[in-house]
């Protein structure tokens, strides 16, 4: 009677474990095939048009009620600022978007590049967050819930674009800060984000992501002399909501061109899919081994033997 129930228990746990593993790996397999919500919005950033006026930065500051900047937004000296290791400016808790200047070799004028969250189709920040603070909304924004953020900063490490920033200035309630595509105040209502509306040069084109890819392709086709034949973000890390067109090779404008097409989750999904298997099967398996090994010699009087052995030793 005892043996049967034990066998049943073992069998059930193995089957259960296998089922869990299968369903989990199926889910993990699904990653990398998601191409964004059909109605997902995005922005096409045309670097050939940007003149570095920083209207987008000023508009973002106002819309998101960010703190006063160190310098006026029309002060071009920020373009010469560098951080640790000569790094150019990056978005932080005080600025969800920044414009940097690059001087590509051979070009007779500087190139300006706006940086902000790219709102990935499959955000690495979202997959790395163990409290599920992040959400990819059906409108295309990657937003986060400050109330559940525990400040682990996994997303800062996971993001391939180094976007999420941390409110280090807050001593008691530090949280992650980043561009949210003006979700709460604008995108939710179908309106373009503040930076897009502020841009005087038409650098930023707001629309459905699918439509923006067509527009980008058309621009490249119409002016092959003007553009590099690539839309950065169309396929990078599984596709991003914000995409870029450039007149110079993307590396020269500070882009990481080594990211590949797979979403960041794909790099770890094989490993992660074995975790539930290990958790579910190993305890049952090794309990089974243990029980089998003990059962061999002494049939039913395990306990008495054990206690005798204990006394001897």
């Amino acid at each position: 009677m005892k043996g049967i129930s034990r066998r049943r228990f073992l069998a059930a746990s193995v089957i259960g474990g296998a089922a869990t593993t299968l369903t989990m790996s199926k889910k993990a397999m699904g990653a990398g095939t998601f191409e964004g919500y059909p109605e997902g919005m995005g922005v096409l950033v045309d670097l050939t048009r940007c003149v570095g006026c920083r209207s987008c930065e000023a508009a973002c500051n106002k819309e998101q009620k960010l703190p006063e900047p160190a310098m006026p937004f029309d002060d071009p000296s920020v373009f010469d600022q560098t951080g640790h290791g000569g790094q150019k400016r990056r978005p932080d808790e005080n600025a969800y978007t920044v414009v940097n200047r690059y001087d590509p070799p051979g070009a007779n004028h500087p190139l300006f590049r706006k940086l902000q969250c790219n709102h990935c189709n499959e955000p690495a920040c979202l997959t790395s967050c163990f409290v599920s603070a992040y959400t990819k909304t059906r409108e295309g924004a990657v937003v986060y819930n400050e109330k559940v953020c525990v400040g682990c900063r996994n997303c800062m490490i996971a993001c391939p674009f180094q976007i999420p920033a941390y409110s280090y200035s807050s001593a008691f309630d530090p949280v992650i800060k980043k561009c949210i595509f003006c979700y709460d105040t604008r995108l939710k209502y179908g309106k373009p984000p503040a930076c897009v509306e502020a841009c005087p040069q038409g650098v930023l084109t707001f629309g459905h992501r699918k439509e923006l890819i067509k527009i980008g392709q058309d621009r490249i086709k119409a002016r092959p002399d003007r553009y590099v034949d690539h839309i950065y973000g169309e396929t990078e890390v599984g596709g991003t909501g914000w995409m870029y067109l450039s007149g110079v090779p993307f590396e020269q404008a500070g882009f990481d061109t080594t990211l590949g097409k797979e979403p960041i989750i794909s790099n770890v999904k094989e490993f992660l899919s074995t975790v539930p298997m290990v958790l579910a099967i190993w305890p049952a398996l090794f309990t089974g081994f243990h029980l089998l090994a003990r059962k061999k010699g002494h049939a039913d009087e395990d306990h008495s033997h054990e206690s005798q052995e204990d006394e001897k030793s």
Binding site: N61, K62, E68, A70, M71, P72, F73, D75, G83
Partner: peptide, 19 residues
């Protein structure tokens, strides 16, 4: 006011070093 320039310039202004 939007650009934080002119009369609305940050008080720390030009002296503000960036971290």
């Amino acid at each position: 006011a939007l650009f934080r320039a002119g009369a609305y310039a940050p008080e720390s202004g030009a002296a503000a070093g960036h971290h």
